[in-house]
């Protein structure tokens, strides 16, 4: 009975968060330069799915705006939010550090490094509808983590502390190289581009990128869910987890790989959106507790909803100009985070 109750609670919470995400999606797609009523959005979507045939009470252009411009952007925002929040849960759990974020072991610097090189190249190769920058950012992020992991490896083991230190050193090095490249290139446009990559903004054109990124992100989150109970055991530390039958090195590598994949996929379409990967896992943990079996999917849904709203602010508040979304996530996220910290009694101990 107890198990049933616990699982039902988990399911109810996730369903509520899923409903919340849907509402956020609906609000976000309805608002913009041309507002579209939520009712029409639902009708158009159901028509598109071939489920119903409502007569059009909307402009044909509304349909174009909805399906080719606004929906891809909002869905991209949801994907980025869920990826960064899940990656935050994975890194915080593995590193046993609630202050960790998805960028802590070099993904951000690696992505910026890759993106900057791509921006400097005179060619703009398109591959599967991706520009060069997202591809370079994706592989830059993964490359940096691979480098950090191998630097931290001593005799078949990768101690957490070595990983954090190696991550810090590699990040500092790559960041310095990025700014050196910008300085030496003498191109004013480059500084602008690098800056906007570092601040983050959701940029997709149509569905082509999403079709590739979505399976990566959703697949990685589902795979991570299977590691959730082992992440609970890892909370006892590497030795304690090993006593409980965990193959610590293998699981650390799995968590690292999934977390990095999620982060790399996210930064490839959004640049470096800060704060969300730190604050969402933290906030969800404070409210729902640290059990990763609930925490991970709940953070993914909350992160998606949070980023969809943040992106809505970013593109509407000063329309027609856009505020970098990283600024919004920090301005909304930080006070909310402080409120949660002060309100709750689920304290942290180190």
């Amino acid at each position: 009975m107890f198990t049933r109750l616990k699982q039902n609670r988990r399911l109810l919470i996730l369903m509520a968060l899923g409903a919340l995400l849907l509402v956020c999606l609906l609000i976000a797609v309805s608002l913009g330069a041309v507002p579209i009523s939520p009712l029409n959005i639902i009708k158009m979507t159901l028509n598109k799915m071939g489920l119903f045939h409502f007569t059009a009470t909307w402009q044909p252009s509304d349909e174009t705006i909805l399906f080719l411009i606004r929906l891809p952007r909002v869905v991209a925002g949801a994907l980025v939010g869920s990826a960064l929040a899940s990656a935050g849960v994975l890194f915080q759990g593995m590193l046993r550090n609630p202050m960790a974020d998805p960028y802590i072991i070099g993904t951000s610097a690696g992505a910026a490094f890759g993106a900057t090189i791509a921006m400097m190249l005179p060619v703009s190769v398109a591959f599967l509808s991706f520009g060069l920058v997202p591809i370079a950012a994706f592989f830059g992020a993964l490359g940096a983590v691979l480098l950090v992991y191998n630097l931290a490896k001593v005799g078949g083991k990768t101690p957490i502390v070595s990983m954090l230190l190696a991550g810090f050193a590699v990040s500092a090095m790559l960041a310095a190289i990025v700014f050196l490249m910008v300085t030496l290139s003498g191109r004013t446009g480059l500084l602008q581009n690098v800056y906007s990559f570092l601040m983050g903004s959701i940029s997709v054109s149509g569905w082509n990128q999403i079709i590739i990124i979505a399976p990566i992100i959703i697949g990685a989150i589902i795979a991570a869910r299977f590691l959730a109970f082992r992440l609970n055991a890892l909370s006892l530390g590497e030795e304690g987890a090993a006593y409980l039958g965990i193959d610590v090195e293998r699981d650390k590598l799995l968590v690292l790989a999934l977390g990095s994949l999620l982060t790399a996929a996210a930064v490839s379409i959004s640049g470096l959106v800060g704060f969300i990967g730190l604050v969402v896992p933290h906030a969800v943990r404070l409210v729902l507790g640290p059990d990763h079996r609930l925490l991970l999917p709940a953070a993914a849904l909350s992160g998606a909803a949070f980023l969809v709203l943040a992106d809505l602010f970013a593109r509407t508040v000063l329309a027609p100009s856009e505020i970098p979304i990283g600024i919004i996530t920090a301005i909304i996220g930080a006070p909310f985070f402080i409120y949660l910290l002060r309100r709750t009694r689920r304290e942290y101990a180190f």
Partner: peptide
């Protein structure tokens, strides 16, 4: 053991089933 997250006692004991 040090435990960085706010698990309840029951949740910790459940880890024994890992």
């Amino acid at each position: 053991f040090s435990m960085p997250f706010a698990f309840t006692l029951r949740e910790v004991v459940l880890l024994g089933r890992t």
